[in-house]
Design a protein around this nucleic acid. Sequence first.
DNA 1: TTGATTATATATCAGACTGATATATTGAAG
DNA 2: CTTCAATATATCAGTCTGATATATAATCAA
Lengths: 176, 176
Amino acid sequence: MYDLFVLGQLMDESMSGYLMRQILQQIVGRQRKISFGMIYPLFKRLNEAGYITLNDQVDVGKRSKKVATITDRGRIRFKELMIQKVPLNPNLEFTYSVKFRNFHQIEPELRREILNEYKNYLLENQKSLSQQIVDMKETPISAPDLKNAQWVISLKQVQMKAALQWVDSSLKKFAE
Amino acid sequence: MYDLFVLGQLMDESMSGYLMRQILQQIVGRQRKISFGMIYPLFKRLNEAGYITLNDQVDVGKRSKKVATITDRGRIRFKELMIQKVPLNPNLEFTYSVKFRNFHQIEPELRREILNEYKNYLLENQKSLSQQIVDMKETPISAPDLKNAQWVISLKQVQMKAALQWVDSSLKKFAE
DNA sequence: TTGATTATATATCAGACTGATATATTGAAG
DNA sequence: CTTCAATATATCAGTCTGATATATAATCAA
C-alpha cells in the first residue's frame, strides 16, 4: 500500500525507517497511526525485491541506523507504479494523493492522464451514487430509513462534486 | 469495525450473513470488497458477546441458513456505540455515515450531538491542514515538491469545506 | 554531576480486514 | 438434463493497525 509513497520519498533523499514513518505520519494526519510494524517489514520487502538498499550508517556520537536508498530498479518500479492504473481498493484516495505529490517527477503528459483517470473515477462514483438512490426507491424499506440513506448519500455527492471542481480547475492549469 | 453497522441493520430485521454482506457491499460501493472472511467471524464474535443469536432456519426447498437476530443486550450495545465518540481511526468517515444512517433509531438530542461532533472533527482537520502548509514552508524542501504538496492539501480543503456546508445545512434542518 | 525526560531507532505481537478461493445446494434457462 | 447463476458458508495468506518493548543518545533540571 505504501510502496509508491516510500519510493517517491526516496527519489530525492535517502532516509531511515524512523524518519520515513515520521514524514508519512505528518501527511496522513491524526486519522491513521503509521506503525513501525508496517514500515520495517515494508523496507525489508522493498530491499528483497531490489528496489532499495539498506546500509548501516554510523555517525559519531549517534546510534547507528539503517538508511534506505533507492536503486535503479527502484526508480523503474516507481515509474511503473506511477503509470499503473490506481486499483479500486480502500486506499484509492491515498494512492491518488501520493501520485499528485510526485507530479514533479513525471512528464506533463502523464500528469494529465492521471488527473483524467481520477476524474473518471469521480464521475463513475457520481453515477453509482445516483443509481443507489434509484435502487433504494425500488426496494421496500421504511420511510425514515430511506430518508436517512438518501441524506447520507448526499454528503458523498457534495464531496464528489467538490473534488470534480478541483480536478477541472487543475486540468485547466496544466493545459496552460 | 462493522459492529455498529451490523447491529443497526438487525434492529428492524433479522438476516443471514450472506444477505448482510450483500447489503453492506452495496453501501460501501466498488472501492471495498466486503468479504465473507470478515462477516462470518464478526457474526461469531457478536454471538459470543451475547449481542446476537444465530438460528438455523430451514425453509422447504431451500438450503438452510444461519439467521442472526439482535438480542436485548445487542440493542443496548447498539445504543452504546451510537453514543460513544467516534474514535480517530481510518474508518472514521464510514462510522459517521453508519451513525447518520441510523438516525431514525435515536432521539433528536443525540442526533444533534453526533452532527456537532462530526463538525468539530472537520474543523479540527481544517486547522491541521492550514498548519501543515505553514510547517512545510518552514522545512527546507524543493520548490516543485512544495507546490505539489500544497496543491494536494487544497483538494482535502475543498472536500472539508463541502462536508462542513452539508453539516451546517443538516443542523439547520434538525433545528426546525 | 546525576537523574529524569525526551528524541532517535528498531523489533515484535495480537487482532482484524482484504481479496481470493473452495465447496455445497437450489433455481432458472435453454 | 445440463449448464449457469444465485444462495450460503468456510478458510487462507498477506497485510495493516495499534500497542508495547527495548536500546542509545541528547537535553535539561536540581
